[in-house]
Nucleic acid binder design. Structure first.
Length: 853
RNA sequence: GCGGGCGUGGUGGAACUGGUAGACGCGCCGGACUCAAAAUCCGGUUCUGGUGACAGAGUGUCGGUUCGAUUCCGACCGCCCGCACCA
């Protein structure tokens, strides 16, 4: 022991040494084209934005993926595990403005720094496939894809009310508006009309919904979130003739999920942007003023929270096709133009919004649904099922039957039909930004919008950020070109793509990153789909839905041959850390805070500090821990082991100092034990029994358990099992026959079992235990010997009335009768004189005596 | 409001298709080594009562199904997440 006390694993030299060895052996290089005889496995983690430094979320994300990649490699799969950079986006422009540095330079410097940090983590990445989305070689291919989509009818340019971020001066997708505010700027979003490019994702709404069923290896909640986001709704379209045509408008179409309540109609309401509203406004200044007021209220959170139903009576009347009655037409601030038809029929008894509106404007509230066996609800809307009343031919029907009957009548009258509506909208992809992929379009006065032919359309480098708005718009020459169709002077589109496009097909590009076409059929057919995708739950909707859509659209345009890009998805939890605030409410860094024995905390001056909730690490809360510092202090293996250790990976993990110290302690201990074992000469396998046999059994049970844990992403359980086996190897071991060999075998197994998780020390141990056998990174996964997994003695619980009263040790697969007798003897005292009513015997598990007092 | 998830020791969490609850780690307690400390090693650690073998209770609460429930069913409480003026 005294000797090994001085042994210290020096990760500072070992880790770079093994990283160099892997690189020299090209361990992680995958071929574009199929290699015969091996199954492929494509492991991908969501690629990072090159902010300049990796954070703990990256460490967790890439460690999880790396465990899978290394494990699958050991299992004999041909693994592709690439890495790249999601490099376009706002921060580069912000840096350009703040520091007068070119966005490209800033981005590539960051990439270089982060590549170095990722390499220090010892990830088994195929760096030969690396690219950044801001490389012209990548985004030029993306422009080709866009033009193909356009030719295939998947692209549209149209005027649209857009979410305008007044701080960032750009258009935001609905998904980028959070609580009425820009997702990056936090500014209240305004509504504006602009000509925008759209991708027709709604063409695939049904398909994207149906496709979720083909994804058994996706988390249920992600599928549910996508399902809700797509939001299929069943109902009917109903056309209401206007009493007198307005301009050329003769009727108003309404979408409803409750056609059976048409007899409960009280009014019809249209959105402020609806054609009817505009036509009315053209001749009625008061209506125009009302509409303007609605637009001004925007979509800000405060407004929506407090928004009161407001309306304007147009004086127009429509006829309800089912009962022939006449109803007023209102403009309502609560009616959404881009859902359904932008018009609703108001049924106050069945919809709370309509109820509120009717009460406010003193409109009638006819009751048409009686709750099951109940009385009419009149003090609020009742939207449950029930029996229809006051509804003419629908009287007496249930709401469900009534719906079918109402639709049938509407069809017969030619006044409507069944219809589905989707919550999903088309994807607005235009951004008034410099640092993005230029939209390859030229606007010609004579020819309109025509595809650019000079691909790639490359971003100009000489741009100025000293004025607001899009620098491409201000550039003196870049946008002025000849029309590719007629040759006349024309201008380039100066908008760039939403950066979500960049990440919608990168997984396909990784298959052949240098191909002269966006994809290479042989490569994508071989490698896709991604077998295991790993990333944050925050991308559950946007990124994953867009990538699924892109895959379908790329199939339609001949770039891909499948529908679903990601066969398996794993969503990891966040890395959290305590946060600290001083008396004045300023966030403090952990190193500025001292914890006292009573659990309270003080700052450097001894003033009290409030310890905040455990929150996601972020710069602003000053609770971020820099992975670079951790790797300096403890090494990459310790950092990797820690993020895998305690929590199931789908849950949030709290960063703690004691946790990282514990992980480090294990690394050091493992090494000490390995050195001790390697120093003892191995006696022949011989005839082993007793302790040695027990150890071998544990070793092989551990192989089985760790294998199962890795397959099911229970990395924390794998860690526990490895701890257990390691624990059995402490001490120098008894000089029993075969013990040295058994210990040697166990440590060799540990080297291979920890290799996916702590690859460096695994190599170190493997070299000690199995000298001359090459790299553990290229070694096969250990296989448990079946005969050592066979249990020949089991401990069976003995219960009386389901309560544990004792245990017995018996040979496995024993006779029920014999074991029951042994059990009975074991709990004879507790049984007393009670009569046994029933005996339950579950082989190798339990005996239960049901007794009567 | 709608949809979904989760509640297990001081703590992070284990527990196969219902079958010995608390694996493993952290923390804590005790011991060894040391002049001492750190490091390391050994032992203990769900709670209550008892010196003790042992007894009782125990997986958010209440009830149900079952020989037996952390696991299945119902109601409730609490926390978390997604969506939301979606007709």
């Amino acid at each position: 022991m005294s000797e090994s006390e001085n042994i210290r694993y020096d990760f500072t030299t070992a880790e770079p040494r093994w990283q160099a060895a892997w690189e020299a052996a090209a361990c992680f290089r995958a071929a574009d084209m199929p290699e015969a005889g091996r199954d492929k496995y494509y492991v991908l983690e969501m690629f990072p934005y090159p902010s300049g430094k990796i954070h703990m979320g990256h460490v967790r994300n890439y460690t999880l993926g790396d465990v899978v990649a290394r494990y699958k490699r050991a299992r004999g799969f041909e693994v592709m595990h690439p890495m790249g950079w999601d490099a376009f986006g706002l921060p580069a422009e912000n840096a350009a403005r703040a520091r007068k540095i070119d966005p490209a330079t800033w981005t590539y410097q960051n990439i270089s720094a982060m590549r170095g940090e990722l390499k220090r983590m010892g990830l088994s990445l195929d760096w030969s496939r690396e690219f950044a989305t801001c490389d012209p070689e990548y985004y030029g291919q993306q422009q080709k894809i866009f033009l193909d989509f356009w030719a295939a009818g998947l692209v549209e340019r149209r005027m649209s009310a857009v979410n305008w971020d007044p701080v960032d001066n750009t258009v935001l997708a609905n998904e980028q508006v959070i609580d009425g505010r820009g997702w990056l700027s936090g500014a209240p979003v305004e509504r504006r009309m602009l000509a925008q490019w759209f991708l027709r994702i709604t063409d695939y709404a049904q398909d994207l919904l149906d496709g979720l069923e083909s994804l058994p290896r996706w988390p249920g909640r992600v599928k549910l979130m996508q399902e809700n986001w797509i939001g299929r709704s069943e109902g009917a379209e109903v056309r209401f003739p206007l009493a007198a045509p307005l301009d050329d408008i003769a009727e108003v179409a309404v979408y409803t999920t409750r056609p059976e309540t048409l007899f409960g109609m009280s009014f019809l309401a249209v959105a402020p942007e609806h054609g009817v509203a505009r036509a009315v406004a053209a001749r009625n200044p008061q209506a125009a003023a009302f509409i303007a007021a609605c637009a001004a209220q925007g979509t800000s959170e405060a407004v929506i929270e407090t928004a009161e139903k407001q309306g304007f009576d147009t004086g127009l009347r429509v006829t309800n096709p089912l009962n022939g009655e006449s109803y007023p037409v209102w403009i309502g601030n609560f009616v959404l133009m881009d859902y359904g038809t932008g018009a609703v029929f108001g049924c106050p008894c069945g919809d709370q919004r309509d109820y509120d509106f009717a009460v406010k404007y003193n409109l009638p509230i006819p009751v048409v649904v009686l709750p099951e066996g109940g009385v009419a609800v009149t003090d609020r809307a009742y939207d449950g099922a029930g029996t229809l009343v006051n509804s003419g031919f629908l009287d007496g029907l249930g709401t469900k039957a009534g719906k079918a009957a109402a639709i049938a009548r509407l069809v017969a009258l030619g006044a409507g039909q069944a219809r589905q509506t989707w919550r999903l909208r088309d994807w607005g992809i235009s951004r008034q930004r410099y640092w993005g992929c230029p939209i390859p379009v030229i606007h010609c006065a004579a020819c309109g919008a025509v595809p650019a032919v000079d691909l790639p359309v490359i971003l100009p480098k000489d741009v100025r950020f000293d004025q607001p708005g899009n620098p491409l718009d201000h550039h003196p020459t870049w946008k002025h070109v000849a029309c590719p169709r007629c040759g006349q002077a024309a201008t380039r589109e100066t908008d760039t793509f939403d950066t979500f496009i960049d990440s919608s097909w990168y997984f396909a590009r990784f298959c052949a990153p240098e191909a002269p076409t966006p994809t290479l059929a042989a490569a994508v057919n071989h490698w896709l789909p991604v077998d295991q995708y790993v990333g944050g739950i925050e991308h559950a909707i946007l990124h994953l839905l867009y990538a699924r859509f892109f895959t379908r659209a790329m199939r339609k345009t001949g770039h891909l041959g499948l529908d679903e890009p990601f066969a398996g998805l794993f969503t990891q939890g966040m890395v959290t850390h305590e946060s600290y605030k001083d008396e004045d409410g300023n966030w403090l860094y952990p190193e500025e805070v001292t914890r006292l024995e009573d659990g309270s905390a003080v700052d450097a001056q001894g003033r009290p500090v409030s310890v905040g909730r455990v929150e996601k690490m972020s710069k602003s809360k000053r609770n971020a821990v820099d992975p670079g510092v951790i790797i300096d202090r403890f090494g990459a293996d310790t950092a990797r082991w820690f993020v895998l250790s305690d929590n199931p990976p789908e849950r949030d993990v709290e960063w703690t100092e004691t946790g990282i110290l514990g992980a480090n302690r294990f690394v050091m201990r493992l090494y000490r034990i390995a050195v001790g074992i390697a120093a003892v000469p191995v006696d022949g396998p011989g005839d082993i029994s007793g302790q040695a046999r027990d150890l071998r059994r544990l070793t092989h049970r551990t192989i089985a358990a760790v294998t199962e844990a890795l397959e099911s992403f229970s990395f924390n359980v794998a860690v526990a099992r490895i701890h257990e086996l390691t624990g059995a190897l402490t001490g120098s071991g008894a000089p029993e026959a075969g013990m040295a060999a058994a210990r040697h075998e166990a440590m060799g197994v540990i080297a291979r079992l920890v290799a996916p998780m702590m690859p460096h020390i695994a190599e170190e141990i493997f070299a000690l235990i199995s000298p001359g056998q090459g790299l553990v990174a290229q070694a096969a996964w250990p296989v448990a010997e079946p005969e050592l997994l066979v249990v020949d003695e089991v401990t069976i619980g003995v219960q009386i009335n389901g309560k544990l009263r004792g245990t017995i040790k018996v040979p496995a697969k024993g006779e029920a009768q014999a074991n029951t007798a042994i059990a009975k003897a074991a709990v004879a005292g507790a049984l007393g004189g009670q009569s046994i009513v029933k005996e339950i015997y579950v082989p190798d598990r339990i005996v239960n005596f049901v007794v009567k007092p």
